[in-house]
Design a protein around this nucleic acid. Structure first.
Lengths: 338, 338
DNA sequence: GTGAAAGCGCTAACAG
DNA sequence: CTGTTAGCGCTTTCAC
């Protein structure tokens, strides 16, 4: 049988209350000698607190929930790992939920996390094309449950709310400026779903760069992808009869698709076409032609979101905190001067 | 305030016990009309069970723990996703722990999962080089806690125990035979850490193939890697002055390193050197030269491990179950006849 | 310095 | 057909 606080109390000839105070290191006037005795007995007996009991009593679970579209995606996994590492440092745990880009499953995940009494939820929006209303409904649901929430890239949700975000407009600008600086004027864009704010912002950054350098914008050279490898490939098919010298794929996975597509049309990188990606996915550095890309500090963003959540359970925080992260241009071999 | 079973009871003019019976759909002789009334009231009031209370009372948490070296690794993430999908179907949840290949952190994860009363743990051994004793100690720890355990690739642990495993000996054999069938005789091997059973088995398979085809074995052509991209690169440095026509990397990540290394020595794939990997990592299909590899059904293995764990909480299972999965040769463009 | 007692929300016997 | 009761393991207030 599992050893409880009562067992320790009995063994030490004390009351459960005293043992609890000692084990939790609560301010009290318990004799040092008693403390030591309790601690050593607890250790000897192999005591492990029962978190269900603690949680029931205190309404705190020392557990965070993470909701992502798919944990298999390196991007989300890295974010998750950032959260996890921060949690581990504080003795917290994490419940992971993949939604598979399904808003109904996202809702179920939220319900489950609520039932499990998590002390906070980090939500990475599903890049869903479904109606924005459901999209928002899920956020409202979390808030209505009074569970602290951190949103990543507060997509389509403008209410004040905790968030960790990358400055995607700047990211879009940086990538485009890099290509422009290399002499490119006819640049194709393979975007993500427009429903996602991160995508919209990137695009705005691109347009801004075109304006700043007085380059005419051409809607023909935009292909709307969905952040998947396949849609990078599709993008190249769409672009095959267009005139361009560089491609900016809004994430690295699509850039990989672009690589494949270019190969199909016997175009080489960067000799014929320059390619730039976004995210700095781990494959980007190991590709045949290492990919120039915009790095998001996604691991650090995960850490920060855990920090915000844990912090907000520690003391009443009134103002939502929004942590904005800087992006970095990583120049590799897939872009060149023309 | 959160609505409890008591609130519902009051609203319905019933006792908490009755409500509990209805909500859990327990065999009872409660009037259909009453049941319906309770259900609708519960729904209206937005009742959500408090799992801490349930867990405290029943000693079941409907939560599984997963311990992996690093969730960022596509391989583990896919396994995790398999487990998660199975769990989601049954309304279970998962706590994820990455150990970063650190046995001490693995121990902490186990302690944490125990404290959180998980109903089962799936352990993916850390490919650690540390002493086997600690390695085993962690498994013993889980068993001593009487928590159902499923081990993946029951590395270095021969006691009867639940496990999901791939037939790595066969995998090693298949890969080697494929190269031999293409006419290769001088084959280099970049292995994983020998401490891992999966690695040992693969190697045995390789040797067996050599025997079956009467090819002399050459220890010189073995490089001991650690399943990382970098060690694939290192392997090529080691092999640079050796004589060989094909490389079998014991996982796809190292195969990527091999790609890079071959490029460095101006050798092309598959014209100069054939390369075969292992795992069917998602990058393998999108590499410049798509990689021939041995596919592990890792997603299905994850599902199966969740199945075993959930099942073993359902009814007393005496015999440990060992599920063995078949591997599949995926022929792409990185291997060719000589 | 320490203990007694109440109660968190729920379930499972058993009683009616 | 439904209610009463006890208690899971822990924390916390207040009393001694």
């Amino acid at each position: 049988m599992k050893v409880t606080i009562k067992d320790i109390a009995k063994a030490a000839g004390l009351s459960p209350a005293t043992v609890s105070l000692v084990l939790n290191n609560r301010p009290s006037r318990i004799a040092e000698s008693t403390k030591e005795r309790v601690l050593s007995i607890a250790h000897e007996m192999g005591y492990r607190p029962n978190s269900a009991a603690v949680s029931l009593r205190t309404n705190r679970s020392y557990t965070l929930g993470l909701i992502v579209p798919d944990i298999r995606n390196d991007y989300y996994a890295t974010y998750a790992r950032g959260m996890e590492d921060f949690c581990a440092e504080y003795g917290w745990n994490m419940i992971f939920c993949s939604t598979n880009n399904n808003l109904e499953r996202e809702r179920q995940a939220i319900e489950a996390l609520c039932t499990k009494n998590v002390d906070g939820i980090s939500l990475v929006a599903t890049p869903s094309e479904e109606v924005k209303n459901n999209f928002i409904a899920n956020r409202e649901l979390i808030l209505s449950m009074k569970i602290p929430l951190v949103q990543m890239d507060l997509t389509a949700y403008k209410k004040p709310i905790n968030a960790v975000i990358s400055d995607h407009e700047k990211g879009g600008y940086m990538a485009t400026r890099h290509l422009i600086a290399l002499g490119h004027r006819k640049i194709a864009f393979i975007t993500g779903p427009f429903a996602l704010e991160g995508c919209q912002s990137r695009l705005m950054g691109c347009k801004k760069a075109f304006e700043d350098y007085n380059i005419p914008w051409n809607d023909e050279l935009i292909y709307k992808g969905n952040y998947s490898y396949a849609s990078g490939l599709d993008g190249m098919d769409y672009l095959s009869d267009k005139d361009f010298t560089a491609v900016f794929a809004f994430n690295d996975l699509m850039a990989c698709g672009v690589y494949k597509g270019l190969e199909k049309y016997s175009l080489s990188i960067p000799e014929d076409i320059s390619v730039i990606g976004y995210d700095d996915h781990f494959v980007s550095s190991i590709l045949g032609v290492p990919l120039t890309t915009i790095r998001q500090p996604i691991y650090e963003m995960g850490k920060e979101s855990a920090r915000i959540l844990i912090h907000s359970t520690e003391e009443e925080v009134s103002e939502p905190v929004i942590s904005k992260f800087d992006l970095k241009l990583i120049v590799r071999d897939s872009t060149r001067k023309i």
